[in-house]
Amino acid sequence: MVEKQKKPFEDNQFLETLDDLPMITVPTTMLPNIMDKVMDEHIRDQVKSFTIPAYMVILGLVYVLISMLSPTDLPWMDFLGMLFSSPESGLLNVFHHIFNICWQLISNQLLRTLIIDGIPYFLGATLAAGLVFLGLRVWVKSLHRNEKGSVEQ
């Protein structure tokens, strides 16, 4: 059996012509946008199902049943802590600690003053980081092909 060898696409004249052509920005109301919406609806349809609430109800009932067998008297504030806890130390526990520290910083009046004191510094740091990001963006954009002569519709 003889296999067909695929030759690389080489048509310099075509590529040169393509480069000389003006760039056109397609309005958002055109075909790609409509296809986006069709795709969105298609994916949504896959999830739109009575099975989701059904699973929720079944799991909820199982939870209530187990809670009757093994009641937990933790207050509602410890809900996240309970959610992010596992007998094995892992990322869940790391997140549990992170949330716990954040919760303490926000809820404790004394610790909240630390956050308020840091707001001016934080704004300054965010501004500096934003300027660096913008500078990088401008620099990276300058490396791209110049779109002079493009016709925008």
Binding site: Y63, I66, S70, G81, F84, S85, S86, P87, N93, H96
Partner: peptide, 21 residues
């Protein structure tokens, strides 16, 4: 930081509850 949410010896019912949640 309170250390009450993941005691070393959680009962399997408690583990199951947390998993379901």
């Amino acid at each position: 930081i309170r250390d009450v949410f993941y005691p070393n010896n959680l009962s399997w019912l408690e583990l199951m509850k947390r998993s379901i949640l």
